[in-house]
């Protein structure tokens, strides 16, 4: 093997590439150390389940998703949902969908689980040839993640407003189990949004020399803060998904009259 000094290296795989390979059949190369398929199967079931659920939920209309003082995040902001004739819920959550769809964590999840690119580490892929990754439409749109972030950030105060509304019923202080779930949902969504890789880049990651730029120390501090949250980005992604589902399902269960909301009302 030789690395030549001045010349520009040309070949990719060495001369023995084509005729060699180490393949003695797919089975011989399959991983034998762990049930690698467990993760993709779980993701398909859970994430797929959520997608199906939210499509269904978004067709029912805002009436099903509201139970004063609660409002499902799938239909937030409420005033907007009131003016959309078809799939009102789905349109309300377009921005969150874009945010999650281009999220660096969910990209891993769906590439592995739904697209099988790859289904697991060191697991052979079914597809050969034609792989373009994120260089071609539509996956190249993932590069626009930061714009989805800008939108998602707006949703945090909107949902916080909804959660604040859940503290009052008929002008009186109201503390229900639903209130707690809605507050928790805002916190988890904020955690998910603030741990975003794009945010990490925007607040400080783009800086090469913190000590050389204006507000460098503050940007370094912000970058450190987001980095700390970012380590748990997958966790935030999952728990906030569950909390959105939980609020929506809770409201629907109340509407269905399965039980009444345990609460305190301060008259």
């Amino acid at each position: 093997m030789t690395v030549r000094g001045a010349e520009v290296a040309g070949s990719g795989k060495g001369a023995s590439a084509g005729d060699a390979g180490v393949t003695t059949g797919v089975l011989a190369r399959l991983r034998r150390d762990a049930p690698w398929w467990l993760l993709p199967v779980t993701v398909v079931v859970v994430l797929g389940g959520f997608i199906v659920y939210s499509i269904w939920a978004s067709t029912t209309g805002v009436g099903e998703a509201r139970n004063a003082p609660y409002l499902s995040p799938l239909y937030s902001p409420g005033w907007l949902a009131n003016h959309i004739p078809v799939f009102p819920g789905l349109l309300c959550i377009l921005v969150p969908i874009a945010f999650r769809g281009t999220c660096y964590y969910y990209r891993k999840a769906y590439h592995r689980s739904f697209l099988w690119d790859p289904p697991g580490c060191a697991v052979p892929e079914l597809r050969h040839g034609g792989y373009r990754g994120e260089t071609a439409f539509p996956l190249s749109l993932n590069n626009l993640h930061r714009f989805a972030l800008y939108g998602a950030v707006v949703y945090i105060p909107i949902l916080a407003f909804d959660a604040a509304n859940a503290f009052s019923l008929g002008g009186h202080l109201y503390l229900g189990l639903g209130t707690a779930i809605m507050v928790l949902n805002v916190v988890l969504l904020a955690g998910y949004t603030l741990s975003c890789h794009s945010l990490r880049h925007l607040v400080g990651g783009s800086v090469d020399c913190f000590s050389c730029v204006r507000f460098g120390r503050q940007r370094y501090g912000a970058w450190r803060g987001v980095t700390r949250l970012n380590v748990f980005h997958p966790t935030w992604a999952w728990v906030s998904l569950f909390s959105v589902w939980a609020v929506d399902a809770y409201v629907r269960m109340l509407n269905a009259g399965w039980f009444t909301d345990p609460h305190l009302l301060f008259r």
């Binding site: 093997m1 030789t2 690395v3 030549r4 000094g5 001045a6």
Partner: peptide
């Protein structure tokens, strides 16, 4: 070294 002028490395 690999970016130096006139240097070639033969490995192994």
């Amino acid at each position: 070294a690999v970016h130096a002028p006139n240097v070639t490395v033969h490995m192994e």
